[in-house]
Each structure stands twice: as C-alpha cells, then as structure tokens.
Design a protein around this nucleic acid. Sequence first.
DNA 1: GTTGCAAGTTGCAACTAGAAACTTATAATT
DNA 2: AATTATAAGTTTCTAGTTGCAACTTGCAAC
Lengths: 166, 166
Amino acid sequence: MTKLREPLEEIAGCSLSAALEVMGERWSFLILRASFNGLHHFEEFQATLGIARNILANRLGRLVQHGILARTPMPDDRRKIEYRLTQKGSELLPSMLALRQWGEKWESGFPSTPVLVDSRDNQPIRRIAIQAHDGRVLPYEELMWMHAEDVKPLGQTTVQLISEAA
Amino acid sequence: MTKLREPLEEIAGCSLSAALEVMGERWSFLILRASFNGLHHFEEFQATLGIARNILANRLGRLVQHGILARTPMPDDRRKIEYRLTQKGSELLPSMLALRQWGEKWESGFPSTPVLVDSRDNQPIRRIAIQAHDGRVLPYEELMWMHAEDVKPLGQTTVQLISEAA
DNA sequence: GTTGCAAGTTGCAACTAGAAACTTATAATT
DNA sequence: AATTATAAGTTTCTAGTTGCAACTTGCAAC
C-alpha cells in the first residue's frame, strides 16, 4: 500500500523517468504487448504470460490507474472484466516496437511474430528510426544534444533564408 | 549471484522479452540515458542518478556483460574506469527516445532537455512514429497484425505492378 | 610511505516477486 | 432455490531484490 521507494521521476529531470515510473516494472510491457495482440481478460493474460495472479492483479491495477488500460465489466457477463487499451496506452506502440526491433537484431536474432503491417496494403511497416525534420534517417554519428533554448527554429525555407540573410 | 527468476525470454516467444531481459530492470535505462548524455564514470553515474553504489555496480556489470557498455580502465589513471556505449548500446537510442517522447506527451507535460538535433543543421529530430514502407505515418487504426508467413513481399514498384497484373 | 580517491563489496533492513491456496461475485445446471 | 462452475481477484508465506551505510582494494599524488 505504501510507496517508500523513491520515484525515479525527480531524479533525472527527464520525461524518460516519468515514462519508466509507469512502464518500468517487470511485466508491464509484456502485459501491454498482450493487449496489443488482442488479449482482454485476466485469465487470458495469466495463461499466456504465466505471470503470478497477485502480480498480474497489481500490474493491471497500476496500468488502469495510469490510464493505459480501461477496465470495464462486460454487460452480458458481469464476472468478466475487459481490459482495453486507451489512446494513451496505444501510443506506447512505437516504444514497444523499437524495443522489439532492437531485441530482434541484437538478442533473439530472428524476426518476431506477429508482424505489424499497414492495413491498406498488408505490407510490413518500416523499421523505427531517428529521422531529421525532412525525413532523412540519421545515424548516431550525425546526432548532437543541444539545450532547448539554443535551438533556433528554422520555419519554412523562405522564412529561413530571409532571417539568415538579415 | 544466482538467477532463479524465470527469464521472461521464453514465455512470450517475442524479442520484446529478450530486450526486457537486458534493459527491463530498474535503473538500466536511466544509466543508458546518462551514457548518451556523456557520463562515463562510476562516480559520475552515482552522483547524478543518486543510485545506490551496489546497485550501480550490479547494473553496470550487467550492461557490460550484455555488450551495451564497454568497460576500459583509463591508461593515464588506472583507477578510473571508462564505461562507453557500444554500437549495440547506441542502437537503443530509438527505444529511449520513443519512451521519452511518450513521457513528455502523457506524463511530464513538458519537453525534456537536452534536445537531440541533426548536427548538419542543428534542427530537432522528427518525432518517432510508425511509418509504412513508403514513409507515410500510420496511426494505430491503420495497423494490423499478421503472421509473418502470410505477408507477401511486394518488391519494387514495377515488379509489384507486373506481379499484380499477372 | 602516508594520505587521497575511484571503484567497487559486504551486511543488514525494508521491500517486491512468486507459488499456491482461499475468497467473492456472478452465471449456469439440476 | 440450491448446487456447482467460473472470472477475477486476495491472502499467506517464502525467496529474491533494492537500498543505505560502512568497509575494502588498487592505484596515484605528495
């Protein structure tokens, strides 16, 4: 009930800590993955993940508290509770995919299944990457950290040329 | 020393589990973030993250074991150990950014600093997103899961048109 | 060769995860 | 209506993990 663990949040002054505060516990991401794959019920999660029931209850509760899953008793059978991804939850998909793609490349060595495809043409999505504002894929060597206040917005090309000339 | 915890790896048959096996523990991602931001030494990590020394030692050891950080004693002062990101480690940047961007939007509410920019023009990178093979940004609703074996490769446009016509 | 410092270890208390049995609310069967 | 079954949790108890603070070890400086 109590929470004596120092939240990671303050420490690093970065929203990464805030994200980890919500998703950084063991099992949270795997429950999320199961949700993305269409599981909605306690027993489904329990059976497919093999997670202990008390931990599962705890994690589902946390995910609901943080607005990542919505908890609804089914109207036709009110024993059944449905856990469904919220908007907030579904926007974790890029994080999950990036992590999965890294795991494929550096750990498991083989492509994961199921595969995420564009529903218009059933073709697999592009690999997640870091891109410049114009869409060029940027390798790590071409990146730099800057203080936010030192970044000068460029705007549209014409505006940019004018202000550069001035 | 012992590892009696069931590895998450097998359970979900997905490389997400493999990635979490390496990066899913408390502090691992924050240590990584600190590395990305130019910290290289034990005492630097300890002071800026406020992590307990034994945990830090443990996590650094794990990250080194998994090839995410390289551990090198400095030649000029062999008390100092340098921890530096490997290729494998630096390729976690997309995952970290995606998580951070999600945290910005849904948890902290403000942009994190420092900001990652394209070093050619000092402009901030594009937001991480899921894209179709042709680069269109795909919202969650336009995505679908498919079994890998059901995905028919399309190849180049010309080839694609020919095979579609046949 | 004593003092200082970086990078760890060790010991102990508090907390968290896991396995299995138990509870509670609803639904299906007799 | 009473019995049995099922979904979703709790509880209990053990084992493993985290965190703090004090201690060690290897090298460097004076």
